[in-house]
């Protein structure tokens, strides 16, 4: 029995160890970047002799990265809006409705998820170039936005679909029985119940767009987003301003995730206090 217990403990330790190692693996490059952004030395090697904010100062003394930040923010905001709305509508159609050609609709809206981003970018680049030569436009931020919407909407759809799947439709029936019309049911019952899923989908979408390199790189033309800016910078040579820039790039993402977590906890608390039965 003792041997058995020992074996179980060993398995538990191994399993938990895998997760810990995996987290270390995930955060090793991110932590390294952040650490190096605070070095006072010009070369990016260990040991870091002293810490300073010199490279942040350097970064802001020559703010040629700001247009890239603006572009990234604009692209991410617009793509998030479209991807979330389209993804939510699509998720409802995926899970709750049955209609002719639904299989085709599902395949069409899921397929971009199965595409390497580079290929997705190339395929759209070809199309926009042909279209551009016919209609007389060249690639820029709006083609990046279209590319992001195509790439990100399936992610948003999956995230919302999980919420739709666990949806208790008797609440809608109850509202309808109480005399609410279709729009009222949607506004007062359906939407609030789906909101946690929609909210996570929006955050997911924003971060995917904010950090997207491949599709922006293919479709941006001469415009630059932050990941493209960093990519061309590390290709030129690893100046310590790039870790600093990279660290700053993490800040909005971190803020979003923390806000989302606070909201989720508050919603959870409200749910458990307002509805003791569940």
């Amino acid at each position: 029995m003792n041997a058995q217990r020992f074996r179980n403990a060993l398995v538990d330790t191994l399993l938990v160890g895998t997760v810990v190692l995996l987290l270390l693996f995930f955060y090793a490059p991110i932590a390294t970047l952040v650490a190096f952004s605070f070095t006072s030395s010009r070369v990016l090697t260990l040991p870091i002799e002293s810490f300073s904010l010199a490279w942040y100062g350097e970064l802001f003394s020559k703010p040629d990265f700001l247009p890239a930040v603006r572009n990234s923010a604009a692209v991410a905001a617009v793509s998030t809006l479209f991807a979330t709305v389209l993804g939510t509508a699509g998720a409802v159609a995926w899970i709750r409705y049955r209609f002719r050609m639904q299989a085709a609709f599902r395949a069409l809206t899921f397929a971009p998820l199965l595409f390497p981003q580079l290929l997705l970018g190339v395929v759209m680049l070809l199309w926009f170039s042909v279209l551009g030569s016919w209609l007389g436009f060249s690639n820029g931020l709006f083609t990046v936005i279209i590319g992001h919407v195509v790439y990100i909407t399936p992610f948003a759809l999956v995230v919302v679909a999980v919420q739709v799947y666990g949806f208790d439709e008797t609440l809608e029936d109850a509202a309808r029985d109480a005399g609410a019309n279709g729009w009222q049911v949607f506004r007062e019952v359906t939407f609030p119940l789906l909101w946690p899923g929609i909210f996570s989908a929006a955050i997911f979408a924003f971060l995917l767009s904010w950090g997207n390199f491949y599709i922006s790189y293919s479709l941006a033309g001469t415009a630059r987003t932050l990941p493209i800016f960093v990519y061309s910078g590390i290709a030129v040579g690893s100046s310590p301003i790039y870790p600093a820039l990279a660290t700053l790039n993490l800040v909005p993402a971190l803020l979003l995730v923390v806000t989302a977590e606070v909201f989720r906890r508050r919603a959870l608390k409200r749910q458990s206090s307002g509805n003791p039965a569940s």
């Binding site: 490059p29 991110i30 990016l44 997911f204 590390i234 690893s238 990279a246 995730v257």
Partner: peptide, 24 residues
């Protein structure tokens, strides 16, 4: 918490993470 950590790392810009790997 672990799920959020994984998702956050997953959603971080691939260029940055790759850059971090160079330094490692």
């Amino acid at each position: 918490q672990i799920q959020i950590l994984i998702i956050f790392a997953f959603l971080t810009d691939a260029v940055l993470k790759t850059f971090g790997w160079i330094l490692i």
